[in-house]
C-alpha cells in the first residue's frame, strides 16, 4: 500500500516538475529556468548525500564514462518539455513523452543496446504501444 502511495506521489512530482518549470520559464526564460531547477536540485541532493553519508561516488570510476554523462540529457529534456507544455498543454505533452520513452525501452530491449540483455517483444507490447498512440491521437484531435 505504501509502495502504491509512493508511486502515485512520484507521478505527481514528475508532472509538477514540468508544470513548475513551465511557469518559471514565463518569468525568467526557458534556459534560465532549466539551469535554476537543475542547480538548486543539485545543491539539495548534495546536502542530502552528505547528511546520509553516502560516499559511493568513489565508485563512479567503475562506470563507463558514457553512462556517467546521462544527467546532461536533462537540459534538452526540460527545455523540450517546457516548450511542448507551452505549445500543446500538459496532458498531450506527457502522453507523447511517455510513448517515446516506452518506445525507446522497446528498441533497447529488442536490439540489446547499451549492454541490456536482448528481449523478444511479444504481442502485448505491440498492442500496448498501439493503444498509447491511439490515445494520444484521441487527445490531440
Amino acid at each position: 500500500m505504501k509502495g502504491i502511495l509512493f508511486a502515485l506521489l512520484g507521478g505527481f512530482f514528475i508532472t509538477l516538475q514540468g508544470v513548475a518549470n513551465s511557469r518559471i520559464s514565463q518569468d525568467i526564460g526557458t534556459w534560465q529556468a532549466t539551469t535554476l531547477t537543475q542547480g538548486t536540485g543539485f545543491v539539495a541532493a548534495f546536502i542530502l548525500m552528505m547528511v546520509f553519508r553516502d560516499d559511493t561516488w568513489k565508485q563512479f570510476r567503475r562506470v563507463k564514462p558514457l553512462y556517467l554523462a546521462g544527467g546532461s540529457f536533462a537540459a534538452i529534456v526540460i527545455f523540450s518539455n517546457v516548450t511542448a507544455i507551452h505549445l500543446i498543454g500538459v496532458t498531450v505533452s506527457i502522453s507523447a513523452l511517455l510513448i517515446a520513452q516506452l518506445s525507446m525501452a522497446f528498441l533497447t530491449d529488442s536490439f540489446g543496446w547499451f549492454g541490456v540483455s536482448k528481449q523478444r517483444m511479444k504481442l502485448p507490447q505491440f498492442i500496448g504501444i498501439g493503444m498509447m498512440i491511439a490515445g494520444v491521437l484521441i487527445l490531440s484531435f
Binding site: G70, F73, V77, S95, L97, M104
Partner: peptide, 19 residues
C-alpha cells in the same frame, strides 16, 4: 509540440538506462 515531447521522451528513456 509533439515532436519536442517525443525528443524529450526518448532522451528520458536513454537517461533512465544510463542512470
Amino acid at each position: 509540440g509533439i515532436l519536442l515531447a517525443l525528443i524529450a521522451g526518448s532522451l528520458v528513456g536513454m537517461q533512465n538506462i544510463f542512470n
